[in-house]
């Protein structure tokens, strides 16, 4: 899956102040992460379970020789997952990269900064600790996750 290049982003900044987000599905939520946080997206990779690891850790994956921790994102953010999460969203440019397991990948969305809002105090069925912002899309709420919180052990 091709990702938009930074130049494209800059161009859009010139015309209208927007931000690009990678979106993905977990349960009935549409989540988003800023595009600059995402390294790549992979379909199912073999996960080797790590016994005695924290419950939200699915195991480790082999990404071209690099061993990454695979996080069961649903468990991490207190969500009840209904389907298998097969997709790996690899995040972390600065930090040690992580793989977030999600059910399905959504579109890349360009969202005007003006439409990025503070999250409400409660989102039903979700631990709002990990939510940085939300954006009201025509048909649903886009939940923008806080990568920093996800990285924290």
């Amino acid at each position: 899956m091709g990702l938009p290049t930074p130049e494209k982003q800059e161009k859009s900044i010139v015309t209208e102040k927007t931000r690009l987000f990678i979106t993905f599905w977990l349960a009935d939520f549409l989540f988003a992460l800023p595009v600059e946080e995402v390294v790549e997206i992979n379909r199912s990779l073999d996960i080797t379970p790590v016994p005695q690891a924290p419950p939200y850790v699915s195991g480790i994956i082999n990404l071209r020789g690099q061993i990454l921790t695979a996080i069961d994102l649903a468990k991490r953010i207190g969500l009840k997952r209904e389907r298998e999460a097969h997709h790996n969203v690899i995040v972390g440019r600065e930090e040690e990269p992580l793989s977030l397991l999600v059910e399905q990948i959504g579109d890349v969305l360009e969202i005007p900064v003006s439409q990025i809002e503070e999250p409400p105090e409660v989102i039903e069925g979700l631990d709002t600790d990990f939510v940085k912002n939300v954006s009201k899309l025509p048909d649903r709420l886009l939940v923008i996750l806080d990568p920093e919180k996800l990285f924290k052990v």
Binding site: V50, Q52, A53, Q66, I67, E96
Partner: peptide
């Protein structure tokens, strides 16, 4: 040998 991520540091 490859190191494990920080989520495993207590292991």
């Amino acid at each position: 040998v490859k190191p494990l991520g920080k989520h495993f540091k207590d292991l």
